[in-house]
Amino acid sequence: MILGILFAILAGSLVSLQNIFNSKTGEHAGSWTTTTLVLGLGFVASFTLGFLFEGKQLFELQNMKTWYWFSGLIGIGVVTCVVKGIKLLGPTYAISIMLSSQLGFALLFDTFGWLGIEKVPFTTQQLIGVLVIVAGILIFKISGEPKSTKMPTGLKSVHAEK
């Protein structure tokens, strides 16, 4: 279990790092160019490492459903939406929303057993957990609004008269 937690923490840090790189690439290139670079380099790296570590077993895909072959296409939507979301909302707010969405959909997939996942009973604690996270994001966004540096109108006239 501890190893799983460590992998999850590492994955979270790598996703955050990748999102920053994607966002910076998106500032200098279009979203399609960014997506092509990210997924293209990812393919080359994973293919090379997979071949080095697994050899010919990399190509043994018995009993895999046909539609799983197309799951990589989802990455196009992921990278494009991440780049655009960060550009429009900023990194922290966009990633917070994405993580909440990911958690909410994971809860739905678990609860209903969608896409062949084993069903996990829905609990009130799970709902409360998701709602607390969403509330935290809302509080973060509301409290993170920049304060106006302008002096109130009434004070301007008082200071101007002195």
Rank of each mutant, 00 (worst) to 15 (best):
T92R: 06
V158M: 05
H28Y: 13
W67H: 15
I20E: 09
Q18I: 04
Y93T: 15
V78R: 00
L39Y: 05
V38K: 02
A11Y: 03
Y68A: 10
A106L: 02
L138A: 02
G85A: 12
F59T: 00
V132H: 03
I5T: 05
I86F: 00
L107N: 10
A29Q: 03
T25F: 14
L3W: 10
Q126Y: 09
L17S: 09
Q62E: 15
L14I: 14
N63L: 13
G42R: 00
T35M: 03
V79D: 01
E118L: 07
L6T: 10
L99S: 07
G113S: 00
H28G: 09
F51L: 06
G75Y: 04
V120F: 14
M151H: 15
L17M: 12
A106I: 05
L52G: 03
Q102H: 07
L88F: 14
E27S: 15
A135V: 07
F112N: 05
E145G: 14
P146G: 08
T124Q: 10
W114I: 12
S46E: 12
G42T: 00
G154V: 04
L58P: 00
Q62R: 12
L6F: 05
T35G: 00
I128Y: 03
K24I: 05
Q126I: 09
K56T: 07
G85P: 02
S143A: 13
M64H: 04
N63Q: 05
T25G: 10
L89H: 07
K87L: 07
F122C: 11
P146A: 13
F59K: 00
I128T: 06
A8L: 15
M98A: 10
S23N: 14
S31T: 04
D110T: 10
V82T: 01
A135I: 14
L138N: 02
T25R: 12
F140Y: 09
F43Y: 14
I20P: 09
A8Y: 08
S46D: 07
L61F: 04
F59G: 00
G104D: 14
F109K: 08
M151P: 03
T36S: 08
P152Y: 01
L10N: 09
M98N: 10
N22H: 02
K162N: 15
L61W: 07
K119T: 11
L49G: 04
V44E: 11
G4R: 10
S100Y: 06
S96I: 11
F21P: 05
I20G: 08
W32N: 12
L6A: 09
L41I: 13
T48S: 10
S100E: 10
F122E: 06
L14A: 14
L108N: 11
